[in-house]
Every structure is written in C-alpha cells, then in structure tokens.
C-alpha cells in the first residue's frame, strides 16, 4: 500500500490578512505558517493510522512550494510519513499545482492520494479533483471516513444534510475533512526522526496556469453592533423583522 499525502503551507488561523503591491500580493510580514489544518488533522493522520494498521504501507508527503515550505514539511514528517517530496515551484493556480502532484503520483504508482478538503487560504477545494482527473482515477471528496479491506475502500462523504457511503477499488483520490481522524501532536521521537527523513527536491514539469489573481480586497467593515437591553428581547425581534428584514 503506497499513500501520497498532499501538504500545503498556509498562514496561521489567527494571521492578520493584509495585502501589498497595490493589493496584488498577500502580506507575509509577521505571518506564522502552519500545515493546512485539513491536510494535517485529517489527511495525514488518517494515512498514519492506515500505516499503523499495515506495517508494509509507505507514506510519502508532497508539497508544491518554494524552499520556505520545508519547515512545514518537516513538521508533517514529525507526525509521520516515510519521506517527503518538494516540487520546487511557487504557484497559486490549482491546475499548475495539480499537474505537479499528478506527475509525482504517476511516477510513484500510489494506491491512495489524500488531500485536505481545501486550503484555508485560497479555499479552492480543487486540487484533489484535478489530480484524480489527470490520473484518470475515481475521486471521493469531502470524506469523513475511510476504511480499507484489501483493495476495496469504503468511504463516507458529506452530502447536503447527511452522508453517503461509497465503495471503490483502489487506486483512488480522496479529500478529507472532519471525522476522518483526530488531530495529533508530534512527539519528541517524531520530531527527532523527522530531521533525518529524506526530503527530495524535484524541479517542476512544464504546465500552464489557467488563472491569475488580479487583485485582493477586504470586505467592508461592519457598521457596529446595535445593542438591545436584555429585558427587551421583543425589541430585538422587532428590529430583525422591521429593520434587518431577516425574519
């Protein structure tokens, strides 16, 4: 069983969101970087659990990013995984990134490619589906459970107001979200081991970018809260009805 887990570097959830260069670039000044929570808590931890259940399984991590993504990939290796691959390219276009991942996936012949359901910065939710299409493999998105029996995967995915259970033969591409696994904290042994795990750097293949960011903006600030006295709940309901027209 060979598993490839896609790891993305994202700003910490408390990072200040601001832009530079005439609102065309994210302001990285003072930003702390983390592993995209969906990649870490759900995709990676589930892969580690699968390996714990099958000693013959191998986990490779992949990130498409510049050298400054390496601390993040080492952090991921501290949680688990056998080795990591960094494709040396800096891009925000999903198709370009997916093309790089698919290339590595083709070479490695993985049984399972796992991604998080989306990144918390670009919120694209596109990489998994694109990789699956490039590999001509099935794709189950927004998965909350993944079980394996031989080469048959039983995957639960979110649907509106419920869940659907899918059965599919490996190989498959899956995007993971809450429910898949419980977040873990790396231990000292993991952190030490991560230092010597192989981290291969490969150059990107030629691929097109289909989109570009023309500019960023911030939503308009709220006008300020209108407070209603605690003993006057009826007034709140009146305001919601007559002023906000929300009920």
């Amino acid at each position: 069983m060979k598993i490839l887990v896609c790891i993305s570097k994202t700003p910490d959830t408390t990072a200040k969101i601001a832009f530079t260069d005439n609102n065309t670039k994210f302001d990285v000044n003072g930003v702390q970087w983390i592993i995209n929570p969906y990649d870490e808590w759900y995709a990676l931890v589930r892969a580690i659990e699968l390996k714990e259940a099958d000693a013959a399984a191998t986990i490779h991590l992949i990130t498409v990013g510049a050298a400054d993504a390496e601390p993040i990939i080492r952090k991921a290796l501290a949680l688990g995984g056998d080795e990591a691959i960094r494709v040396n390219a800096d891009s925000h276009d999903s198709f370009y990134i997916a093309s790089q991942i698919a290339e590595i996936a083709k070479q490695g012949g993985y049984d399972l490619v796992l991604t998080g359901k989306e990144t918390i910065d670009y919120n694209g939710s596109s990489i998994g589906g694109m990789v699956a299409e490039l590999l001509d493999q099935p794709y189950v998105s927004l998965a909350t459970k993944f079980e394996l029996a031989g080469t048959k995967a039983t995957i639960t995915r979110e649907i509106e107001g419920g869940e659907e259970v899918n059965e599919v033969e490996l190989p498959v591409v899956v995007s993971a979200q809450k429910g898949m696994a419980e977040a873990r904290i790396p231990n000292m042994r993991g952190i030490m081991a991560a230092r010597t795990k192989p981290l291969k750097v490969v150059e990107p293949i030629a691929a097109d970018a289909l989109t570009t960011v023309a500019g960023f903006g911030l939503p308009p600030a709220k006008a300020g809260v209108k407070l209603v006295a605690a003993d006057n709940v009826e007034e709140l309901v009146r305001l919601l009805h007559e002023e906000a027209k929300a009920i």
Partner: peptide, 14 residues
C-alpha cells in the same frame, strides 16, 4: 472568497 471569508480575490481566467 479567500482566507476563509476574511478577504476576497479577483481571479482572472485566461
């Protein structure tokens, strides 16, 4: 939407 609703981006499709 980008940055989980904290900002937006204008994306040009070529």
């Amino acid at each position: 939407n980008v940055f989980s609703g904290k900002a937006f981006a204008n994306i040009s499709v070529s």
